[in-house]
């Protein structure tokens, strides 16, 4: 088997208004040397991909509520089926918002508590390594990673949150550089400092921070590589 044949095949969905698809493509293709293709939002067949990524951006302009229009896009029916069959789905930023709107992940996203768009480097703590997206990480490890969003204030009702905790679905929490989840380390008012969650089957992950923006150390951090390395390890492990 060649090296490439063992690698995960990535598909990056492009909605009109997506704007991180090329960054994600660059990180996977050029930095991780893994096979990746764009998937136009009108596509209804996701056969041939192992991991489908919904990238960051402003799908359809997001003039209404983030992700509210994109969830009705033709490709989303295929994403639902793909996930139901156990395919890996990663939503980054706007992609996370779309997964929430589509009901693939629990909870909802509100405007940032400060009512402003926030772009900055910050820290998140790895809460579980029991996902295909985080298995190369260490539980409790602190990643330095950027965010850039206006609606990242995650919310779930108390019952839902309790259920998510019970099933270990909280994947990342905003924290200080020392790894403490304090109110000061929370950039957007997110419930319980939540920065990323997965579904109960653990094959769908939504995260507000951008791993593709920190895959090359010249950009200030390479901690985002751990997401890609985890996914690529899945491929080697399963094949």
């Amino acid at each position: 088997m060649t090296a490439t044949a063992g690698k995960l095949r990535f598909g990056i969905v492009v909605f009109p208004g997506s704007n991180c698809e090329a960054d994600t493509w660059h990180a996977i293709h050029d930095e991780m040397d893994a096979p990746v293709e764009y998937v136009w939002h009108e596509e209804t067949n996701l056969d041939g991909y192992d991991c489908v990524i919904l990238p960051g951006g402003f799908s359809y302009g997001d003039y209404l509520r983030t992700g509210a229009v994109a969830r009705f896009s033709p490709v989303m029916g295929a994403v639902q089926e793909f996930a139901a069959k156990g395919g890996l789905v990663l939503g980054i930023c706007n992609g996370f918002q779309i997964l929430l709107e589509a009901g693939l992940l629990p909870g909802a996203m509100l405007r940032n508590a400060g009512q402003k768009f926030v772009c900055r480097y910050l820290h998140v703590r790895v809460e579980t390594t029991d996902t295909p997206f985080t298995r190369e990480m260490t539980k409790g490890a602190v990643l330095r990673i950027p965010i850039a969003h206006g609606e990242g204030n995650y919310y779930a009702d108390p019952d839902m949150l309790a259920e998510m905790k019970e099933h270990d679905q909280i994947v990342f929490r905003y924290c200080t550089a020392e790894g403490e989840s304090t109110p000061e380390a929370n950039p957007n008012g997110s419930l319980d400092n939540i920065a990323g969650v997965c579904n109960r089957d653990r094959n769908v992950l939504g995260m507000m921070p951008h791993p593709e923006r920190c895959t090359d150390p010249i950009l200030g951090s390479a901690d985002g590589r751990l997401v890609w390395e985890s996914l690529l390890e899945v491929s080697r492990g399963d094949s």
Binding site: K116, F117, C119, E212, R213, L219
Partner: peptide, 11 residues
């Protein structure tokens, strides 16, 4: 000011 601008997109 610059926190409100996405200054990292396009990597």
């Amino acid at each position: 000011v610059y926190r409100q601008y996405d200054h990292m997109v396009q990597t």
